[in-house]
Amino acid sequence: MSAREEILGRIRRAVRDAPEVEIPRDYRTSVPVDDPVGLFAERVDDYRAVVHVLPAAEVPAKVAELVRGRRMIVPDGLPDEWTGGAAGGAELSGADGVVTGCAVAIAETGTIVLDAGPGQGTRAQTLVPDYHLCVVRADQVVASVPEAVARLDPVRPLTWISGPSATSDIELNRVEGVHGPRTLEVIVSI
């Protein structure tokens, strides 16, 4: 008998008399938040990432200021006004940073989610460079985790990012900066 058949057989024998289960979903699936962008910015800041909340018109200049002097990766599909005039490249080696958009952002947890869609690059492009600048549109900010899960497509490769790379492995104290980008900077465009 194959391992597959044997394991499935063992499972069927094991749960034969187990009761059926009803799932109570009484938790919050949406959370009323007065100022999702404000909460998002506060929570991102808690992770010691840098946050700027700016009117859309001021975003291009801010991006330009932040990417000046850095060799940036500019992924395909990133709106021109978010490139900061960086010479668009996709080359990983030698890049200092990457500028991306995102798929969705979560206020309660200060999380941005990338789904490798237009302007978000491949997973490697947002991982290897030491600096990640992410521009979030206000309408991409949802209040809670359930609202984010509902908006995302699981078939796409997803990367949930909550602050810069960190570890709690030494005495269970959080320290920023291990293998992923050590600096995460977020601009919320309102």
Binding site: R43, D46, P154, P157, T159, S162, G180
Partner: peptide
């Protein structure tokens, strides 16, 4: 509130 990174992938990716 959330761990720094969560990766999700489906099958052979990229």
């Amino acid at each position: 509130r959330m761990n720094p990174y969560t990766s999700m992938w489906t099958g052979a990716t990229e």
